[in-house]
Design a protein around this nucleic acid. Structure first.
Length: 316
DNA sequence: CCCCAGGCAGTTA
DNA sequence: TAACTGCCTGGG
């Protein structure tokens, strides 16, 4: 509890944009604005010590769409973690080696509509986390036809009921994400303790598949993006959207472009593509965003969802 | 009480 | 292959 480490000179880093853009589900926003994160069989608390002066000066950054959200350096305070652990584990998890300013510039320069520029400015400090494969796979099966509040509860319940305790932090016992063999050994009734609904059967069957043919699962990481996607979609409960989330969030395939209801709205109402033509949307992303499609998707998704009334008001 | 949430799978035409 | 529909659950 007393271990601390500070990291200064961090650019393009905004806690709420990173954790509330829907890529991960095991975090809690604390009263002081810090975030407690559970991942990699560990738990830490992240706090931003020095705010971007320009953003702070703007008063309410949520209401400002563009100019005021320029880059600035912040200092991170990480609790329950020492320097060695941060360097060895969390630095990579938080994707701190990547230059997001450069990514935003490239995406913006390739889109003269101005929508990408607005979305990237709005989502200032968003980063794609380098998440664990197995946890991400199960979490996004849970996510289908579901809302974020309930997804978080389901995932937390899976950990509390079937994970291993890793100690008390901030007055709560923390647990690891359950291993494939554990979920594979659960009956449907046992899994339903977590209120997973019809997704319980998908999770059980997928856990069984991955346990029984673990080699295929291990080999998947070496596959090309399309072959990886085919493999993932062969697992119960994984369709095109969930597969794209997994390749993007857990396998670092940044050419992935998950198309969900929000991205569909953006593509149709901002970029003028036919509402139901996901193939055209995928082709558009591939052409316009290329190897940076995943970053574009996160900026656009977050921008649309947080500003639905403003951004998507035209065409009802 | 109704609507629906970051879809998927099975069934029709 | 495109369109249609049911699905667990609980938040708003």
């Amino acid at each position: 509890m007393s271990k601390n480490v500070t990291i200064s000179g961090v650019r393009d880093f905004n806690l709420s944009h990173i954790f509330e853009c829907g890529q991960c589900f095991r975090w809690d926003r604390e009263e002081d604005g810090s975030y407690t994160i559970q991942a990699l069989d560990r738990v830490i608390n992240l706090k931003v010590l020095s705010e971007n002066p320009k953003e702070a000066a703007s008063g309410n950054s949520k209401k400002v769409l563009a100019e005021n959200l320029q880059d600035g350096e912040i200092t991170l305070l990480i609790n329950n973690c020492d320097k060695a652990e941060f360097d060895g584990v969390w630095h990579h998890y938080l994707d701190l080696d990547r230059d997001y300013g450069k990514i935003k510039n490239t995406l913006t320069a390739n889109d003269d509509s101005g929508h990408m520029a607005a979305a990237a400015a709005y989502g200032y400090g968003m980063r794609l986390l380098q998440q664990e494969r197995w946890e991400t796979l199960i979490s996004f099966i849970v996510s289908q036809n579901n809302n974020i509040a309930r997804i978080k509860k389901c995932v937390a319940s899976l950990c509390e009921n079937f994970g291993k305790p890793i100690g008390v932090y901030r007055d709560k016992m923390r647990y690891t994400f359950p291993e494939p063999e554990v979920l594979a050994g659960c009956s449907l009734e046992e899994l339903q303790i977590c209120r997973l609904g019809y997704r319980a059967e998908y999770i059980r069957q997928t856990a069984v598949r991955i346990t029984e043919d673990n080699e295929a699962w291990q080999r998947a990481a070496a596959l090309g993006t399309e072959e990886l996607s085919v493999y993932l979609r062969s697992l119960p409960g994984i369709g095109p959207k969930v597969a794209n989330c997994i390749t993007l969030f857990a396998f670092g395939r940044y050419d992935s472009f998950p198309i969900d209801v929000w991205v569909r709205k953006v593509m149709s109402r901002l970029y003028g593509l036919p509402e139901n033509d996901t193939a055209a949307m995928a082709a558009f992303a591939s052409d316009k965003f290329g190897d940076l499609s995943g970053f574009a998707q996160q900026y656009l998704f977050f921008y649309a969802r947080e500003n639905a009334k403003i951004v998507l008001k035209e065409a009802d």
